[in-house]
């Protein structure tokens, strides 16, 4: 497979950072997929004394504050937030692509309306936006996913639109119009394939940010509900035991951070390899 004349392998190993990122993300995704088959104990099962230290004969990473196997909970702890973040951001980016490309192509009043809505959302501090929704509609996985989608939608529209703007004046678009292609056809057949790289990078960057937001929400008690294992929730559960069992917040913090670091390295490398400016994308979410 070739993108911009580069093989996928070349892109994924663009720099040492990219390779590390790709490896970290792959490990996390593999773990998330296969954890139910790999975990030594049920993730909600009470199997031992509370707060056994890591290195215990039966429990590699010890037990949590009520005696559940900590390794099993850690391995299962990313599934919900990764799913919420990926599905939410994917929705935001896919729907955002349509609005962004059409706004860039059609322009005028339609463009104005979309951009004002985008500006409105971008003017409201992110956590506040999410908190209001979650408090309003309750804290279910569905609500969380929709909220993540809504909060990343405007940023995605903004970035993708500016990429599409560079394409609209190009000859192939004019040619398509002269051939008599319909507006929808120009949007889907001509423009969208040419912004696909930005969309992919956008997806990777926003997913990493979304994972941080979901974990912060769980930490603040607005995210995922017990007994579902979740890293952000595990940190907040462990905070009160920090002097006695620091590993209870250390391990989940490391899991969140390695995933986010991996995503950022990978998306950064991806953007560089594709000649895009990733720094702009880091913003405005």
């Amino acid at each position: 497979m070739l993108v911009n004349g580069k093989s996928l392998g070349a892109i994924l190993t663009h720099s040492p950072g990219t390779t590390v990122g790709v490896i970290l993300v792959s490990l996390h995704l593999l773990n998330a997929l296969f954890a139910p088959l790999l975990i030594p104990y049920g993730e909600t099962q009470l199997v031992g004394q509370p707060m056994l230290e890591p290195g215990h004969a039966n429990f590699l990473l010890g037990t949590d504050v009520i005696g559940r196997d900590f390794l099993s909970r850690l391995m299962m702890g990313g599934r919900t937030s990764i799913t919420v973040a990926m599905v939410g951001v994917l929705g935001a980016v896919l729907i955002g692509t349509f609005f962004a490309v059409s706004a860039a192509y059609i322009g005028g009043f339609y463009d104005d309306v979309i951009m004002r809505i985008v500006d409105t959302k971008l003017s409201i501090p992110g956590i506040l936006f999410v908190a209001l929704f979650v408090v309003g509609f309750g804290r279910s996985v569905t609500v969380l996913t929709i909220v993540i989608g809504l909060s990343y939608f405007p940023g995605a529209v903004r970035t993708i639109r500016s990429q599409a703007m560079t394409q609209v004046p190009l000859a192939y678009v004019k040619a398509a119009r002269l051939r008599g292609e319909s507006t929808l056809s120009v949007i889907f057949r001509e423009l969208t394939p040419n912004v696909v790289e930005v969309v992919v990078v956008e997806f990777a960057i926003r997913t990493s940010s979304a994972i941080l937001i979901v974990s912060a929400l769980s930490f603040l008690g607005l995210g995922i509900s017990p007994p579902t294992p979740d890293w952000g929730l595990m940190v907040s559960e462990g905070v009160n035991q920090i002097y006695q069992a620091p590993w209870l917040i250390l391990f989940p913090a490391v899991f969140i951070s390695t995933l986010v670091v991996g995503l950022n390295f990978a998306s950064d490398g991806l953007a560089n390899a594709l000649g895009l400016d990733a720094a702009r994308g880091l913003h405005g979410g």
Binding site: T44, L46, G138, R139, G221, S225
Partner: peptide, 18 residues
């Protein structure tokens, strides 16, 4: 609690609310 009632065949989902 939710784990302990399982022994009697009771499945009791729990959820934390605001």
């Amino acid at each position: 609690m939710a784990e302990s009632v399982k022994e009697a065949g009771i499945t009791m989902p729990i959820e934390l609310k605001q």
